[in-house]
Amino acid sequence: MRRTTIDIWVGIFVVIGVLALLFLSLRVGNLGSSKLQSPYVLQARFDNIGGLKVRAPIKSAGVVVGRIDSIALDSQNYQALVTMKMDDRYRFPKDTFATINTSGLLGEQYIGLEPGGDPENIEPGGVIKKTQSAVVLEKLISQFMFSAAEKGNAGDK
């Protein structure tokens, strides 16, 4: 008799525990929103990326079209090499202009893409030539803001 009541309670407990984990992952975290359909890769070089982080969004006209996959320093010309995973549905012309922007004052940094007029699109795996770095002032502000908000976690990675 008591066995079954314990079983049902443990069952309920495990179910709502897992639901809480799912809630945290999907609603609070970014696991749900980061599913890109068969992504392709683009790269871009910046002189200075400021506070840009891995997994930051790539936006075009405000729409998220991809996410940053990795950031590395190109040791040949000492530029930051940013690898982006782009949503397969969106293609961009060859003279697309990539800038590093900040959403609002406190917001995180993202890469904004402004398409040019070139009739040919960049091939998957290609490189965006025209880039604009994060301005130093913005970097300072963002560093200040991040240190205020996240206690020194800015500048990671």
Binding site: L24, R27, V28, N30, P57
Partner: peptide
């Protein structure tokens, strides 16, 4: 409230580490 939360809370870095 939800949008900024989702943009800033990373699954691996924050949630998985918390777990």
């Amino acid at each position: 409230f939800w949008g900024q939360m989702q943009a800033s809370v990373d699954f691996q870095r924050d949630i998985l580490n918390g777990v």
